[in-house]
């Protein structure tokens, strides 16, 4: 029963997931070691999020090893080899709240909903990605080894 409800919660769309209390996290050094909410990411779903320009938004600024994707950004490091350059925990903090590492960064804090200004009504009090989506993206980025 508990397992069923957990699965259901994970399947909820981002807007509904945002209405749930967002799982907290602990920063250690430049990383968040533990998966958000203890969730296990799915690399396939993560890939879809990374490539979706309205969900992950990644390719607006980043390029990556996706030769089939036209119009990628060059404002941020290439995602190629991200899984070799960073640990899972390091990637997690860089997605959750990159500004904590570099206050001037262009990288949005994907999991932060506070200390923001004039957020459009449709996005207010919602993270860019849910805990589950962030874990999916991390699982996918960890597969980018070369």
């Amino acid at each position: 029963m508990l397992r069923a409800s957990t699965t259901a919660a994970m399947l909820l769309c981002a807007s509904l997931a945002a209405a749930q209390p967002a799982p907290g996290y602990t920063v250690t050094g430049d990383a968040i070691a533990e998966p958000l909410g203890g969730l296990r990411g799915d690399a396939q779903r993560g890939r879809a999020i990374v490539l979706d320009r309205r969900t992950g938004l990644c390719l607006l600024c980043h390029s990556g090893p996706f030769p089939e994707e036209r119009f990628q950004g060059d404002l941020a490091p290439d995602l190629k080899g991200a899984g070799a350059r960073w640990s899972e925990g390091q990637l997690r903090l860089r997605m959750v709240d990159s500004a904590r590492l570099n206050p001037n960064t262009l990288m949005p804090s994907y999991y932060r909903t506070t200390d923001l200004t004039r957020v459009a009504a449709a996005f207010r009090d919602k993270p860019v990605l849910s805990a589950a989506q962030i874990e999916d993206v991390i699982a996918f980025l960890m597969t980018l080894k070369d």
Partner: peptide, 13 residues
């Protein structure tokens, strides 16, 4: 110069 929005970016950036 003010950062704004869910993506927290300023015009200047």
């Amino acid at each position: 110069l003010r950062r704004q929005g869910q993506l927290n970016l300023s015009c200047a950036q």
